[in-house]
Design a protein around this nucleic acid. Structure first.
Ligand SMILES: Nc1nc2c(ncn2[C@H]2C[C@H](O)[C@@H](COP(=O)(O)OP(=O)(O)OP(=O)(O)O)O2)c(=O)[nH]1
Ligand SMILES: [Mg+2]
Ligand SMILES: [Mg+2]
Length: 399
DNA sequence: GCCGTTTTCGGCCCGACTGTTTTCAGTCG
């Protein structure tokens, strides 16, 4: 799967164009990069099918570039742009607090091209001498280097869930928060998540934020304010917390759930109506509140049916919501059966009748009983005769 | 460079925190 490689090159092009002062194109390249990155289908498949432009944000020009990357592993346009600034922008901007402008400044002042150069310059105390940078920036860069060198690993959704739950439990225990919800890619149910995004309301936001950055396994405080704080845990996982006024909770949940592209599209929709949408609410020309308490109100006021978080990727869901054409998502209640169930006939814990009763309680219409057969002394299993008897009991329960 | 029941041309989201700034640019969500 070459999605990561393609995204990386597109992101670099965005930074390089931005540094040249080119307007709007950086935004287009970033949007395309993000679309490719968050696409769970290999981008090669789109190329093979000639369907790259089906990705919203990818047009003819970028589609051609993606095809070139997939076929040759590189892109002439990208290499040409890099001649003017021959540095590893992608790696350098992975350092916390280092963006394209700082990377360029570091290259021009000190010849820094990569992370090793950056570390040498920081250790030698050269960075604090650059006009516009200082001691704190140098120290922050030194702290950020190790993290930037780690191989980029997004966390599987299933690993992130329990961590988020535990974090929420610990924050709730401080007694300083009234509401706490998980937002970001975790709420959207993405297969992998880059960080944890948590939204809260609190009577005393300063105290709540202080409790957050003071959690035991916080290794680094990236930002600390009454509305927004960010930390890195000792595991390397970043956690972002937004604290908003109670009445803005719906607008804030909409903002913080994202995705970024979905947020931007919704905000543009508000602008087209002469309104403004931010994490505090939807406002008309005069600043009057149109909606803010719930997400549902925000979508309704923008003329859209409610869009479930799982669909919020700006890949056609807004048009569908406007037309009332949103697909029905699979819910827990849609699960009809369980095709792998053990009972106490082998190594399961519950008797067959209990499993059947529980399955009915959960609204399942069938289960497949898949007890072990006898094949080792170590694992309990059914003999051919027991299988026949179990089949009879199943028939009785079905009857 | 992309996109569209306001448009196929003319727009392109909005705000919080930090550091070195004497008034705001850069980075990030
Ligand atoms: N309006 C707006 N919202 C943004 C922007 N960047 C991020 N957000 C919002 C939407 C995101 O889903 C949310 C959390 O940001 P993250 O960087 O954590 O992204 P997200 O959780 O979607 O993906 P991740 O798995 O963390 O990479 O903040 C932005 O540039 N503008
Ligand atoms: Mg996130
Ligand atoms: Mg985040």
């Amino acid at each position: 799967m070459k999605n990561k490689l393609v995204a990386r090159i597109l992101y670099e092009i965005a930074d390089l164009l931005e540094l040249e002062g080119v307007p709007f194109k950086p935004r287009a390249y970033r949007r395309a990069a993000q679309a490719v990155e968050s696409c769970s289908t290999p981008i090669e498949d789109f190329v093979a099918a000639g369907k790259l432009s089906e990705l919203s944000g990818v047009g003819k020009a970028i589609a051609d570039k993606i095809e070139e990357i997939v076929k040759t592993g590189k892109l002439a346009y990208h290499e040409e742009l890099k001649k003017k600034l021959p540095i590893d922008l992608y790696s350098l901007t992975r350092v916390d607090g280092v963006g394209p402008k700082t990377a360029k400044l570091l290259y021009e002042a000190l010849g820094v091209r990569n992370l090793d150069d950056l570390e040498r310059a920081a250790r030698a105390g050269k960075i604090r001498e650059i006009k516009g940078l200082g001691k704190k920036t140098e120290e922050k860069i030194l702290r950020g280097l190790a993290e930037a060198r780690r191989t980029e690993a997004r966390m599987p959704l299933g690993h992130a869930y329990p961590i988020a739950d535990e974090l929420r439990r610990r924050l709730r225990k401080t007694g300083l928060f009234t509401r706490l919800e998980v937002a970001g890619s975790l709420r959207r149910g993405m297969e992998t998540i880059g960080d944890l995004d948590i939204l809260g309301t609190a009577p005393d936001p300063n105290a709540a934020a202080a409790a957050f950055v003071g959690l035991p396994d916080v290794e680094e405080v990236i930002a600390h304010g009454p509305k927004k704080s960010s930390v890195r845990l000792s595991s390397g996982l970043q956690v972002d917390l937004r604290i908003v006024p109670e009445e803005s909770f719906g607008a804030a949940l909409q903002y913080f759930t994202g995705s970024k592209a979905h947020d931007i599209a919704l905000r543009a929709r508000a602008v087209a109506r002469g309104w403004k949408l931010n994490e505090y609410g939807l406002f008309d020309e005069g600043g009057k509140v149109l909606a803010r308490k719930t997400e549902a109100e925000i979508y309704a006021r923008l003329g859209l049916s409610f869009i479930p978080p799982e669909l919020r990727e700006d890949q056609g869901e807004i048009a569908a919501a406007e037309a009332g054409n949103l697909p029905d998502l699979v819910e827990l209640s849609d699960i009809r059966g369980d095709l792998h169930v053990h009972t106490d006939w082998s190594d399961g814990k519950a008797p067959l009748a209990v499993m059947v009763a529980e399955a009915k309680k959960r609204g399942l219409s069938y289960i497949a009983v898949t007890d072990h057969a006898k094949f080792s002394q170590m694992i309990p299993g059914l003999t051919p005769d027991e299988v026949r008897r179990q089949i009879e009991e199943i028939a009785r329960l079905n009857g």
